[in-house]
Amino acid sequence: MPRTSRPSHQPVTREARPARQPPVEHPRVLAAQLYELHRTAGAGEEYLERWPGDAELYGVLQFAETNASRLADAEAYRQGARLRVMLAEWLRRLADPLQLRAIDDAVSGGVSWDQLALDLRFVGRDGEPTAGSAHNSRSRLYVRVHGQPDDRRQPKVARLIEKRTVDARLARAQVIETEDARYPAMDAAARTLLGHFESGEILGDPDDDFWWSELANVVDDRRDASERANLVVYVRGAVHETYAYARCTDQPPTTTDQARQVLEAAAALVGAAGAGT
């Protein structure tokens, strides 16, 4: 009898893993649900007065663990345990960035990796600190904090993420440099557009002029290169908003030839601005 071949599966690379998403509910909502379980089970009991408050996640977890046996109903006990699981996951996610910054501050402040290994309890059988383990732990923590959900928590992936971050920063710097050089033209286009819009020559949605309002608010407030480069976002939004409303209402976007030329010139200007902003 011929052997049937097993279906082939796409291999998972060593740099990626299935994404691990955070719990759906906000931690305060989970804490409030946990309190309701205890309030229902222990109505009138003094221990409820020790509830730490929905925002104190660590205190909520301690309270819920200490008083778990008070949930006598089996379903309530199971639900309480599940809520504790999800709250603990939120607490871990909130604590990871704090520990990463603490480690980096310690290293930049002159603390050795040997000392950090002792602090983090990375020691060998001989009781000596294993600095490499502490450093690898920091790398995995870096992946958890700065990586994508499907990045594997491995030291080499931390290096890939650091490179990804540097590349993104360099690309953003290039965009800022390019757009800042175009700022005089963008600023002139923004002010001319606003003049025609305010005079009623450029069509606007009377119920939703978000981008025109934003453009008017920011045009006089571009203080540094990043803000000057970002003006293109508001000009593009106002132009797109006008053309979209014109299509929806089957109206021309402008009422005068001069306004039409200004709008078309601005559209051409932002169309050449690139997608990086």
Rank of each mutant, 00 (worst) to 15 (best):
F197P: 00
Q99S: 08
D207R: 03
P252R: 04
D180T: 15
R172Q: 12
S69Y: 06
Q251I: 00
L269D: 03
L194H: 02
A134I: 06
V12D: 07
R140Q: 10
V123T: 15
G110P: 11
A267K: 05
V85A: 10
R159N: 14
L48A: 10
W90E: 07
Y77C: 04
R236N: 15
P11N: 06
V60W: 01
L231F: 03
A246W: 08
V175R: 04
M86W: 14
L91R: 15
E198R: 13
D221W: 14
A244P: 00
R50I: 11
R78N: 10
G274M: 05
Y243R: 04
H135D: 14
A95W: 05
L98A: 14
W51T: 02
V166D: 12
E15H: 13
R260D: 08
P149S: 11
G59V: 04
A102S: 07
G127A: 11
S69I: 10
E56K: 12
V29A: 13
N230Q: 14
A32M: 03
T66Y: 13
A43F: 11
Q258K: 08
L160M: 12
V107S: 02
E128T: 12
V107F: 08
R236D: 13
D250P: 00
T40R: 11
V235Y: 03
S69L: 11
R182Q: 15
G127D: 08
A181N: 12
R82I: 08
L98C: 11
V145C: 09
R159S: 12
R260N: 07
D221M: 10
D114F: 06
A225N: 04
I176E: 11
S137W: 04
G271H: 06
A275C: 05
V24N: 12
R223H: 10
V145P: 00
R222L: 15
G127W: 02
R14W: 09
G80S: 04
L37W: 15
Y77V: 01
Y183T: 13
R50W: 14
P149T: 13
D126H: 03
D114P: 02
D73L: 03
P129T: 01
A168G: 04
T254W: 01
T277R: 13
D119K: 07
A68R: 15
D207P: 05
D114Y: 05
L61V: 10
A190T: 09
E264W: 00
T165M: 15
Q251M: 08
A32L: 03
S8Y: 00
P52M: 02
D114S: 14
Q261F: 12
V12S: 11
L116I: 04
D105Y: 05
E75A: 13
A55Q: 12
H26D: 15
H135N: 09
I103S: 04
A19H: 10
A185R: 13
A189V: 01
R92H: 14
G42M: 09
R223S: 11
D96P: 01
D180S: 13
R152S: 15
E46M: 03
Q258G: 05
L203E: 01
L193W: 02
G109N: 05
T254E: 01
Y77S: 05
